[in-house]
């Protein structure tokens, strides 16, 4: 393996950028593929895209005979919760058990305390002040749980434009209707808005904050494992 190639692969990995190292077995020829490099004409395009979604490395057959090994690196999935609310208190430990890295953001210091959130990363900041640090990406899920537009709207818009694999927002249909008007005024397309999971969570009749947390986590996992086809008519942005 060429050192420069290895260095580029490692830089992608540490920077939460997905990448695939393609190694032809036999010749040993290698190339590094980023999602934006995948041309439709590439005979491996479908395979490479599927691998970027699954994150699984593996051996594949090449068209002209022979095999290639795909070393697939995708960032570990993580969840960003807007709102250090009661639902988040239940959701953080559940999400960590399920293997997600979790960050909770809430500028209200009465909510965002380490007593209420002993696990995970807690940022007592306005979302707009920490968006850059978060660098939302397609391997991030974001759930906005405050129903306060001042806190929720900016990260929701950012999550949609970053292509987060899941974007959910708490609130009644009426609240969500008002949200539609505000976000569309802010430039969110109707199709992108439809991708928001709202009313939030799997339809299991969740009543308590902890049950809502289960419902939200279920839809996050479904979005991660089942991909865009799970979503309703809007699909993912």
């Amino acid at each position: 393996m060429d050192l420069q190639l290895l260095a580029r692969f490692n830089a992608a990995r540490s920077g939460r950028k997905p990448a695939i190292l393609v190694t032809e077995i036999g010749s040993g020829a290698q190339r590094l593929v980023a999602p934006s490099d995948i041309a439709d004409a590439d005979p491996l395009a479908a395979e490479l895209r599927a691998r970027l979604r699954s994150g699984k490395s593996g051996l594949i057959a090449l068209e002209g005979g022979g095999q290639a090994f795909l070393t697939v690196s995708v960032p570990p999935p993580r969840i960003v919760l807007i709102g250090a609310v009661h639902i988040s208190q239940a959701l953080v430990p559940m999400a960590r058990i399920a293997g997600f890295d979790v960050t909770v953001i809430d500028p209200r210091t009465a909510f965002a305390t380490s007593e209420r959130f002993p696990d995970g990363t807690l940022l007592a900041e306005w979302p707009s002040d920490v968006l850059e640090q978060l660098s939302l990406d397609p391997y991030t899920a974001l759930a906005a749980l405050t129903h306060d537009p001042k806190i929720d709207d900016v990260p929701l818009t950012a999550a949609l434009s970053a292509g987060c694999f899941y974007v959910g927002a708490l609130g009644s249909r009426k609240t969500h209707g008002k949200r539609r008007e505000r976000l569309q005024e802010a430039g969110v397309t109707p199709a992108a808005f439809e991708a928001i999971d709202a009313p939030i969570g799997a339809d299991i009749g969740a009543a308590s904050p902890a049950e809502i947390a289960v419902a939200v986590l279920a839809n996050i996992i479904a979005a991660l494992r089942k991909g865009p086809e799970l979503k309703g008519e809007g699909g993912r942005p």
Binding site: M1, L3, L6, A7, F9, N10, R13, S14, R16, P75, P76, R78, D101, T103, T121
Partner: peptide, 22 residues
């Protein structure tokens, strides 16, 4: 977010790079 970072002391690909540079 700490577990996102690639720990050079435990990651073979990062080590392959740093050892070669050494």
């Amino acid at each position: 977010m700490q577990q996102d970072a690639i720990r050079a002391d435990a990651d073979p690909l990062a080590l392959a790079e740093s050892w070669t540079r050494e």
